[in-house]
Write a protein that binds this DNA or RNA. Structure first.
Lengths: 243, 243
DNA sequence: AAACATCTAACTGTATGACCAAATAAAAAA
DNA sequence: TTTTTTATTTGGTCATACAGTTAGATGTTT
């Protein structure tokens, strides 16, 4: 707002660029005006004037904020405050994995830590709809055992996301959903490493155990089953040379 | 030159804009060319030509990628592949918290889940440097007990980040460091809720217990001490009306 | 007259091009 | 080796054309 009156506060520039400053201004605007997800923001021109910058700068700021899913932009309509989701974190995780600074086993360690908690929370707090949804996914996995592996992979990923959602904590959902991209890259290796049909059926029964424990609201069994599930996943990948 | 010929051989225009397509292209380029953190990317003009878009579009794509810390941009120098860090996730978490979809207690639940694991890993894997660094932080907390609370807060945050780093898993570090912004917003409330000096000293001794357990490589004691630390934090904030 | 659907016009973001300034990095000179 | 110069590259601005969205106005139907 200070920059609104004087377009060139040279000594205020410090070390960050105008775009980054505009991003800060927009975030401050959202807070100051108590704008919640879905609320519309001023137009690019108005935002630019508000920060005392040109329209392209405001555009870049909006673009940056939209990649973080802080705002939602679209052709022809004003920017709106966005609902947080996993997509941006997904890209960050993907890049972290790509750089080699995070191994698959390390990522699985984080996933296990998170999911041992979500399965416990889900067991305690689950709704009946959550339980039936979970059992339905397992049912579909059994049915898809003969079909292509892609269907089972999608069901596997969904299974864990349903549990996370049943935990009632959005942050767990976002974190666990963000692993989806990396999981897709290694899931096939684990599945192919389970050579026999018995082994593959065992993997599905593992999910069934978890679902049944959540249905029965048996916290101890649910945690144990989830632990066994991750132990199995870690070992299978290890045997395939994935460290 | 772009409008004359078909810039992209594919008909994948679908529903995403040119900027988002350019972001995908740049990420694909990094992977295809095996560019690791620190490696320079082609100039904006080259990138724009590569994706068949104008320079402003390439600029916005680079800006979006830089907010995710996938690339690192700077005035006068070419964009480089960036090392993943917590800053982008920090903004996402901040926004998630602001929208009210994530309560402070829920955030603390995630933190506790994460840190119960990092303290165990740190206890097992710590280097001598990690242990002395931890004890040094506790030492400084004692010394700063009389000074302003801001110093103690910074030391508190550093304490947890050092443990995360000692875990040897970068993802834990990124996740835990990303809580810094939100922690800053509520730490003062917890500190002021600890009215008496005895209570405040107890909080510091709590950190000392954790540090000593890590130093002694006593996993059971370390986990118990961390649990007690979070129990205390939860209760203090609860008494202050922070749900 | 009131409710509904349709259409048009104003508004807004998308994309491009050219331009200048500032900062960097590389080449040249000391 | 150090300093200076030069070329390259990004940061930022402006003007323009284009393509969607939205909302108001219009007209029709109930």
């Amino acid at each position: 707002m200070t920059s609104g009156s004087t377009p060139s506060p040279l000594m205020e520039a410090s070390d960050i660029g105008l775009v980054e400053q505009a991003m800060i201004d927009i975030r401050a605007y959202i807070r100051a005006k108590r704008r919640m997800p879905g609320a519309v923001l001023p137009s690019e021109i108005a935002l630019a004037a508000h920060s005392g910058v040109s329209r392209p700068v405001a555009r870049e700021a909006l673009r940056g904020l939209s990649t973080l899913r802080v705002v939602d932009i679209g052709h022809g309509r004003k920017a709106r405050v966005a609902m947080p989701d996993a997509s941006s974190l997904s890209v960050i995780l993907d890049h972290t994995s790509y750089t080699g600074k995070l191994s698959i086993q390390q990522m699985l360690d984080v996933r296990r830590t998170l999911e041992l908690r979500t399965v416990l929370l889900a067991t305690i707090r689950r709704s009946d709809a959550d339980a039936t949804a979970l059992l339905s996914v397992v049912q579909q996995m059994h049915a898809a055992l003969e079909e292509d592996q892609n269907t089972i992979m999608k069901l596997d990923i969904t299974f864990h996301e349903v549990i996370a959602r049943a935990s009632g904590n959005l942050l767990y959902s976002i974190l666990i959903e963000s692993f989806r991209v990396i999981t897709r890259q290694t899931w096939g290796i684990g599945w192919r490493a389970r050579a026999t049909d018995d082994n593959r059926l065992g993997s599905i029964l593992c999910h069934e155990n978890i679902a049944n424990a959540i249905m029965a609201q048996d916290a101890v069994r649910a945690e144990a089953a989830m632990n066994a599930h991750f132990d199995s996943a870690v070992n299978v990948l290890l045997r395939a040379g994935i460290t």
